[in-house]
Protein backbone atom coordinates (compact mmCIF):
# COMPACT_ATOMS: atom_id res chain seq x y z
CA UNK A 1 0.00 0.00 0.00
CA UNK A 2 1.34 3.35 -0.97
CA UNK A 3 -0.96 5.29 1.31
CA UNK A 4 -1.13 4.04 4.83
CA UNK A 5 -4.33 4.57 6.68
CA UNK A 6 -4.27 5.89 10.20
CA UNK A 7 -7.87 6.09 11.44
CA UNK A 8 -6.66 6.32 15.04
CA UNK A 9 -4.69 9.50 14.69
CA UNK A 10 -7.84 11.61 14.93
CA UNK A 11 -8.31 10.53 18.55
CA UNK A 12 -4.94 11.71 19.75
CA UNK A 13 -4.83 14.35 22.41
CA UNK A 14 -2.87 17.41 21.43
CA UNK A 15 -1.30 19.47 24.12
CA UNK A 16 -2.02 23.13 23.69
CA UNK A 17 -0.62 24.38 26.97
CA UNK A 18 1.66 21.99 28.87
CA UNK A 19 1.23 22.31 32.61
CA UNK A 20 3.66 19.72 33.97
CA UNK A 21 3.31 16.27 35.49
CA UNK A 22 1.98 14.48 38.53
CA UNK A 23 3.77 11.17 38.49
CA UNK A 24 3.05 9.58 35.17
CA UNK A 25 0.03 11.86 34.63
CA UNK A 26 0.55 14.67 32.23
CA UNK A 27 -1.25 17.82 33.11
CA UNK A 28 -1.94 19.89 30.07
CA UNK A 29 -4.57 22.01 28.46
CA UNK A 30 -5.37 19.80 25.51
CA UNK A 31 -7.58 20.33 22.49
CA UNK A 32 -10.05 18.05 24.27
CA UNK A 33 -10.36 20.57 27.10
CA UNK A 34 -10.68 23.37 24.56
CA UNK A 35 -13.55 21.55 22.84
CA UNK A 36 -15.29 20.99 26.16
CA UNK A 37 -15.14 24.67 27.02
CA UNK A 38 -16.20 25.52 23.48
CA UNK A 39 -19.20 23.24 23.97
CA UNK A 40 -20.04 25.07 27.19
CA UNK A 41 -19.74 28.31 25.24
CA UNK A 42 -22.05 27.12 22.47
CA UNK A 43 -24.62 25.83 24.94
CA UNK A 44 -24.47 29.12 26.83
CA UNK A 45 -24.95 30.94 23.53
CA UNK A 46 -28.10 28.97 22.78
CA UNK A 47 -29.62 28.86 26.24
CA UNK A 48 -28.44 32.14 27.78
CA UNK A 49 -27.51 34.68 25.12
CA UNK A 50 -30.36 33.74 22.79
CA UNK A 51 -32.92 33.83 25.60
CA UNK A 52 -31.75 37.16 27.00
CA UNK A 53 -34.65 39.04 25.43
CA UNK A 54 -37.16 36.61 27.02
CA UNK A 55 -39.32 37.07 23.95
CA UNK A 56 -42.88 35.82 24.11
CA UNK A 57 -42.58 35.05 20.41
CA UNK A 58 -39.18 33.36 20.25
CA UNK A 59 -36.51 33.81 17.65
CA UNK A 60 -34.83 30.78 16.11
CA UNK A 61 -32.16 30.32 18.75
CA UNK A 62 -34.55 30.88 21.63
CA UNK A 63 -36.96 28.41 20.03
CA UNK A 64 -34.10 25.93 19.85
CA UNK A 65 -33.33 26.39 23.54
CA UNK A 66 -37.02 25.99 24.38
CA UNK A 67 -37.31 22.85 22.26
CA UNK A 68 -34.34 21.28 24.01
CA UNK A 69 -35.72 22.31 27.38
CA UNK A 70 -39.19 20.92 26.74
CA UNK A 71 -37.77 17.77 25.19
CA UNK A 72 -35.62 17.05 28.23
CA UNK A 73 -38.39 18.05 30.61
CA UNK A 74 -40.69 15.53 28.92
CA UNK A 75 -38.04 12.85 28.98
CA UNK A 76 -37.29 13.44 32.63
CA UNK A 77 -40.95 13.63 33.57
CA UNK A 78 -41.76 10.39 31.79
CA UNK A 79 -38.95 8.57 33.56
CA UNK A 80 -39.22 10.02 37.06
CA UNK A 81 -42.63 11.63 37.42
CA UNK A 82 -43.03 14.83 39.40
CA UNK A 83 -40.22 14.17 41.87
CA UNK A 84 -37.54 14.33 39.21
CA UNK A 85 -37.74 18.09 38.58
CA UNK A 86 -34.73 18.83 40.77
CA UNK A 87 -32.56 16.77 38.44
CA UNK A 88 -33.51 18.82 35.40
CA UNK A 89 -30.27 20.87 35.44
CA UNK A 90 -28.20 17.67 35.58
CA UNK A 91 -30.07 15.85 32.84
CA UNK A 92 -30.30 18.93 30.64
CA UNK A 93 -26.61 19.73 31.09
CA UNK A 94 -25.64 16.14 30.31
CA UNK A 95 -27.81 16.04 27.22
CA UNK A 96 -26.59 19.35 25.84
CA UNK A 97 -22.96 18.62 26.71
CA UNK A 98 -22.93 15.21 25.05
CA UNK A 99 -24.99 16.41 22.09
CA UNK A 100 -22.80 19.41 21.35
CA UNK A 101 -19.57 17.45 21.84
CA UNK A 102 -20.86 14.67 19.56
CA UNK A 103 -21.84 17.20 16.92
CA UNK A 104 -18.50 18.99 17.24
CA UNK A 105 -16.97 15.66 16.32
CA UNK A 106 -18.87 15.80 13.01
CA UNK A 107 -17.06 18.96 11.93
CA UNK A 108 -14.25 17.98 9.57
CA UNK A 109 -10.84 17.92 11.30
CA UNK A 110 -12.52 18.46 14.64
CA UNK A 111 -11.93 16.30 17.67
CA UNK A 112 -14.66 14.09 19.15
CA UNK A 113 -14.29 14.50 22.90
CA UNK A 114 -16.85 11.78 23.59
CA UNK A 115 -14.72 9.23 21.75
CA UNK A 116 -12.51 9.11 24.84
CA UNK A 117 -13.62 6.53 27.33
CA UNK A 118 -12.37 8.51 30.29
CA UNK A 119 -14.71 11.40 29.44
CA UNK A 120 -17.80 9.25 29.02
CA UNK A 121 -16.82 7.28 32.09
CA UNK A 122 -16.44 10.50 34.04
CA UNK A 123 -19.97 11.52 33.07
CA UNK A 124 -21.38 8.06 33.82
CA UNK A 125 -19.61 8.01 37.18
CA UNK A 126 -21.13 11.38 37.95
CA UNK A 127 -24.60 10.03 37.14
CA UNK A 128 -24.16 6.88 39.23
CA UNK A 129 -22.69 8.76 42.18
CA UNK A 130 -25.65 11.15 42.08
CA UNK A 131 -28.02 8.17 41.96
CA UNK A 132 -26.34 6.39 44.87
CA UNK A 133 -25.70 9.59 46.83
CA UNK A 134 -29.22 10.91 46.49
CA UNK A 135 -30.74 7.47 47.02
CA UNK A 136 -28.88 6.90 50.27
CA UNK A 137 -29.41 10.48 51.43
CA UNK A 138 -33.14 10.34 50.76
CA UNK A 139 -34.00 6.75 51.60
CA UNK A 140 -31.10 5.58 53.79
CA UNK A 141 -30.69 1.85 53.93
CA UNK A 142 -34.03 1.49 52.19
CA UNK A 143 -32.26 2.52 48.98
CA UNK A 144 -30.51 -0.84 48.96
CA UNK A 145 -33.93 -2.45 48.71
CA UNK A 146 -33.32 -1.72 45.06
CA UNK A 147 -31.29 -4.89 44.99
CA UNK A 148 -33.98 -7.01 46.63
CA UNK A 149 -36.87 -7.67 44.28
CA UNK A 150 -40.13 -7.82 46.21
CA UNK A 151 -42.46 -10.81 46.12
CA UNK A 152 -39.65 -13.25 45.48
CA UNK A 153 -39.15 -16.40 47.58
CA UNK A 154 -36.28 -16.09 50.06
CA UNK A 155 -34.47 -18.99 48.45
CA UNK A 156 -34.21 -17.18 45.17
CA UNK A 157 -32.92 -13.98 46.77
CA UNK A 158 -29.53 -15.59 47.13
CA UNK A 159 -29.30 -15.69 43.36
CA UNK A 160 -31.25 -12.56 42.49
CA UNK A 161 -29.51 -10.09 44.79
CA UNK A 162 -26.05 -10.68 43.26
CA UNK A 163 -27.60 -10.39 39.81
CA UNK A 164 -29.24 -7.09 40.74
CA UNK A 165 -25.98 -5.82 42.24
CA UNK A 166 -24.04 -6.77 39.14
CA UNK A 167 -26.61 -5.19 36.88
CA UNK A 168 -26.43 -2.00 38.93
CA UNK A 169 -22.65 -1.93 38.85
CA UNK A 170 -22.64 -2.53 35.12
CA UNK A 171 -24.75 0.56 34.58
CA UNK A 172 -21.96 3.14 34.63
CA UNK A 173 -19.88 0.81 32.47
CA UNK A 174 -22.58 0.29 29.87
CA UNK A 175 -23.53 3.96 29.99
CA UNK A 176 -19.99 5.12 29.30
CA UNK A 177 -18.94 2.36 26.90
CA UNK A 178 -22.08 2.78 24.79
CA UNK A 179 -21.40 6.41 24.05
CA UNK A 180 -17.64 6.01 23.73
CA UNK A 181 -17.86 2.97 21.43
CA UNK A 182 -20.50 4.56 19.21
CA UNK A 183 -18.46 7.68 18.67
CA UNK A 184 -15.17 5.84 18.27
CA UNK A 185 -16.50 3.23 15.86
CA UNK A 186 -18.43 5.78 13.83
CA UNK A 187 -15.46 8.05 13.38
CA UNK A 188 -13.15 5.17 12.51
CA UNK A 189 -15.65 3.86 9.97
CA UNK A 190 -16.05 7.26 8.35
CA UNK A 191 -12.31 7.72 8.19
CA UNK A 192 -11.76 4.30 6.64
CA UNK A 193 -14.44 4.65 4.01
CA UNK A 194 -13.29 8.15 3.17
CA UNK A 195 -9.79 6.75 2.87
CA UNK A 196 -11.02 4.11 0.43
CA UNK A 197 -12.07 6.92 -1.89
CA UNK A 198 -8.54 8.28 -1.98
CA UNK A 199 -7.03 4.85 -2.30
CA UNK A 200 -9.24 3.92 -5.25
CA UNK A 201 -8.55 7.22 -6.96
CA UNK A 202 -4.85 6.41 -6.78
CA UNK A 203 -5.34 2.86 -8.11
CA UNK A 204 -5.35 3.55 -11.83
CA UNK A 205 -8.26 1.89 -13.59
CA UNK A 206 -9.88 1.03 -10.29
CA UNK A 207 -10.56 4.70 -9.76
CA UNK A 208 -13.88 4.25 -11.58
CA UNK A 209 -15.05 2.48 -8.44
CA UNK A 210 -14.16 5.38 -6.18
CA UNK A 211 -17.73 6.84 -6.10
CA UNK A 212 -18.92 3.72 -4.26
CA UNK A 213 -17.09 4.40 -1.00
CA UNK A 214 -17.83 8.07 -1.51
CA UNK A 215 -21.57 7.39 -1.39
CA UNK A 216 -21.00 5.11 1.55
CA UNK A 217 -19.08 7.86 3.30
CA UNK A 218 -21.93 10.29 2.67
CA UNK A 219 -24.43 7.78 4.03
CA UNK A 220 -22.20 7.08 7.02
CA UNK A 221 -21.89 10.79 7.71
CA UNK A 222 -25.66 11.11 7.80
CA UNK A 223 -25.83 8.06 10.05
CA UNK A 224 -23.21 9.55 12.34
CA UNK A 225 -25.24 12.74 12.72
CA UNK A 226 -28.16 10.54 13.76
CA UNK A 227 -25.94 8.59 16.14
CA UNK A 228 -24.53 11.79 17.61
CA UNK A 229 -28.01 13.05 18.50
CA UNK A 230 -29.37 9.64 19.43
CA UNK A 231 -26.54 8.79 21.81
CA UNK A 232 -26.95 12.10 23.59
CA UNK A 233 -30.64 11.33 23.98
CA UNK A 234 -29.91 7.78 25.13
CA UNK A 235 -27.42 9.05 27.68
CA UNK A 236 -29.89 11.56 29.07
CA UNK A 237 -32.79 9.08 29.06
CA UNK A 238 -30.81 6.40 30.86
CA UNK A 239 -29.67 9.01 33.36
CA UNK A 240 -33.31 9.88 34.00
CA UNK A 241 -34.22 6.20 34.38
CA UNK A 242 -31.38 5.61 36.84
CA UNK A 243 -32.37 8.72 38.76
CA UNK A 244 -35.86 7.28 39.03
CA UNK A 245 -34.33 4.41 41.01
CA UNK A 246 -32.87 6.92 43.43
CA UNK A 247 -36.23 8.65 43.76
CA UNK A 248 -38.37 5.52 43.99
CA UNK A 249 -36.13 2.66 45.12
CA UNK A 250 -39.00 0.23 45.69
CA UNK A 251 -39.24 -2.47 43.09
Amino acid sequence: MAVTIDPIHQFELKTLVPLGHIGSQQLAFTQSALYMFAAVGVIALITIVATASRAVVPGRMQALAEIFYEFMEDTLHQATGDGGKKFMPLVFSLFMFVLVLNLFGMIPYAFAVTSHLIITFGLAALVISVVVGYGVYKHGAHFFGLFVPSGVPKVLLGILVPIEVISFISRPISLSVRLFANMLAGHIAMKIFAFFVVQLLLAGAWSVLSPLPLFLTIALTALEFLVAALQAYVFATLTAIYLNDALHPGH
Binding site: L27, A28, A33, M36, F37, A39, I118, G122
Partner: peptide
Protein backbone atom coordinates in the same frame (compact mmCIF):
# COMPACT_ATOMS: atom_id res chain seq x y z
CA UNK B 1 -6.29 12.80 35.22
CA UNK B 2 -6.01 15.99 33.18
CA UNK B 3 -9.04 15.02 31.09
CA UNK B 4 -11.10 14.31 34.18
CA UNK B 5 -10.06 17.63 35.70
CA UNK B 6 -10.98 19.56 32.55
CA UNK B 7 -14.20 17.60 32.29
CA UNK B 8 -15.05 18.46 35.89
CA UNK B 9 -14.29 22.13 35.30
CA UNK B 10 -16.16 22.37 32.01
CA UNK B 11 -19.14 20.35 33.12
Amino acid sequence: LAQLIWLALAF
